[in-house]
Design a protein around this nucleic acid. Structure first.
Lengths: 188, 188
DNA sequence: GTCTATAAGTAGATAGAC
DNA sequence: GTCTATCTACTTATAGAC
């Protein structure tokens, strides 16, 4: 977990807490406490305070999710199998009651959309990156460009929504229900 | 807006604020201020404080969404048209920058899932009600029971997720992208 | 049923020593 | 780069008058 410098430790802990408890639900003191980072150094590394930590944390989450998605999607031979594999991996995370590491910016995105423009834009950018990856993957499996783009939005929605249901049900089954219906959606 | 008694005014205002700013992002003072309700009466009507207000507010949102969904879904002659109509109505809400009235418990559901069991259960119950309605509608259009139940979960996920994207983009287009792909999903 | 005042705690943020 | 102490503002919640 520790990457050596204090900044990364703070950011990693903040990512974890923000995505589970949200922006307002997570205190700076809690981040300090859980990370074990020295309290005094927080405003040294992030002079703009909580908002700056949140922005950097969201960028980190975005990249993390992008990487694991890219990995999942490259391991299969059809679009259906690829996305089903991706969804199944996410479903597994919600079964264990362990921390939901690196999944989901939906909570903070909803929370801040109407109040913090800068955070809204970072979230928007993360979603665009994921959709670009999905689009690219669908094109590789011979989906026409426009349809691929639209399906990417739909898949993105599906994953965000099913993740909320999974949290609410404390189980990955909503994601598995989604995986099961993917073949109907992904017809040429 | 005012339904006569103070309790309902508080609840209505709380619903609005909770779904836009979340639980931790909304202060009791803000609810009082915005509702114009007398401050002293808050703990008279809700002796258990903020958590009780949240639980009742979520129930209210759940019923409100259920009713408008029932209305939307009963106006068309095919499953595809019915759900497309429903999604289109939601999309329109996100275009105007007005308050998102009565839509979406996803934010508060994510926020509280890991910390307040009682709130998590109320959200779970609301989702189950909506899915039951979707299932019923799909069965009416000759979908087999098991498939109808699974599609209901998928549609629920789709709506929750696309609503987050709509907020993040300040536009209803993600919901319209979903509507456009519904015919592929809803094949017998 | 409503109102005022206030308790008790915690939030984010800052200043200055080291 | 880190630590400690502290400031101000705000939070939920309560007590007691009306």
């Amino acid at each position: 977990m520790k990457k050596g410098n204090t900044r990364d430790v703070i950011l990693h802990t903040a990512s974890e807490l923000f995505q589970r408890q949200g922006y307002h639900g997570t205190g700076l003191n809690q981040i300090i406490e859980k990370s074990g980072a020295p309290k005094g150094s927080l405003y040294y590394h992030f002079p703009n305070g909580k908002e700056e930590i949140a922005i950097e944390a969201i960028k980190l989450m975005g990249q993390h999710i992008l990487e694991s998605a890219r990995e999942d999607l490259s391991e299969k031979d059809t679009a259906i199998e690829a996305f089903q594999h991706h969804v199944a991996k996410i479903a597994d995370v919600f079964d264990g009651k362990a921390c939901v590491d690196g999944l989901q910016i939906g909570l903070i995105a909803s929370e801040m959309a109407s109040s913090h423009e800068s955070i809204r834009l970072v979230c928007k950018s993360a979603y665009e990156d994921w959709q670009a990856l999905y689009t690219e993957c669908l094109q590789r499996f011979d989906f026409e460009t426009e349809r691929a783009k639209e399906l990417a939005v739909v898949i993105n929605s599906l994953l965000e929504g099913a993740s909320i249901l999974a949290q609410t049900n404390e189980s990955g089954w909503p994601l598995r229900a989604v995986a099961k219906q993917l073949p109907a959606l992904l017809v040429h």
